[in-house]
Simulated scan of single mutants.
Amino acid sequence: MMPFRVEVIPNRYIAGMRTKTCMVHIMKDTQDIAKQFMPRRHEVNHRIGNHVFSIQNFGPDFSPANPHSEFEKWIGIEVSEIDALPKDIKSFVIPTGTYAVFDYKGSMKDFSAFRARIFQEWLPNSDYILDDRPHFEIVDENYRKDLNNTEESVWIPVQKKI
Rank of each mutant, 00 (worst) to 15 (best):
A100K: 03
I138L: 14
Q36R: 08
H46C: 06
D29N: 12
Q31N: 10
P39N: 01
K73N: 09
H68D: 14
V101E: 09
S107V: 10
D88C: 05
S107R: 03
I55K: 06
A84T: 07
P157A: 06
Q31L: 05
T98R: 07
Q31T: 07
H25D: 05
M17D: 01
T150K: 03
I9G: 10
P134D: 02
N149W: 07
K73E: 10
T150C: 05
G76N: 09
I75H: 01
P95E: 07
T96L: 08
K73I: 01
S126I: 02
K20M: 15
F136A: 12
P64K: 01
R47H: 02
G49L: 00
S69T: 01
H46Q: 13
E152D: 04
K35C: 00
V24T: 12
P86K: 06
R47N: 08
I82F: 13
E137Y: 01
K161P: 05
F119Q: 03
Y13A: 07
P134H: 05
S63R: 15
A84S: 15
M108C: 00
Q120V: 04
D29E: 09
A113T: 14
F58S: 11
A116N: 05
K145V: 11
M17R: 05
L85H: 07
K105H: 09
W74F: 06
T30M: 13
F114G: 02
Q36E: 15
I129W: 12
V158M: 00
L147W: 12
Y99I: 00
E141W: 08
I94M: 13
S63N: 15
V24L: 11
E81L: 09
I9Q: 14
W122C: 06
I156D: 01
V139S: 07
V154S: 05
M1D: 05
M23S: 07
I118H: 11
P157D: 03
T96P: 10
V6G: 04
I138N: 10
A84D: 11
E121T: 05
P10C: 05
D132H: 15
Y13C: 04
V52I: 15
I89L: 04
G106V: 09
T98K: 04
Y13H: 07
A100F: 00
G49T: 00
H135T: 11
Y13M: 09
V8W: 14
R133Y: 01
N149I: 10
A65F: 00
P39V: 01
N57D: 15
D127T: 10
K73S: 08
S126P: 02
Q56N: 04
F111K: 02
G16A: 06
V8E: 15
E137I: 06
E151W: 00
E7L: 15
V52N: 11
T21A: 03
N57Q: 13
M108D: 07
F58W: 08
I129P: 11
V79M: 07
E81G: 02
R115P: 06
P60L: 13
I82R: 12
T96M: 14
Y143V: 02
I94N: 10
F114P: 12
Q56L: 10
A34L: 14
Y99M: 06
A15P: 06
D110G: 03
F92L: 11
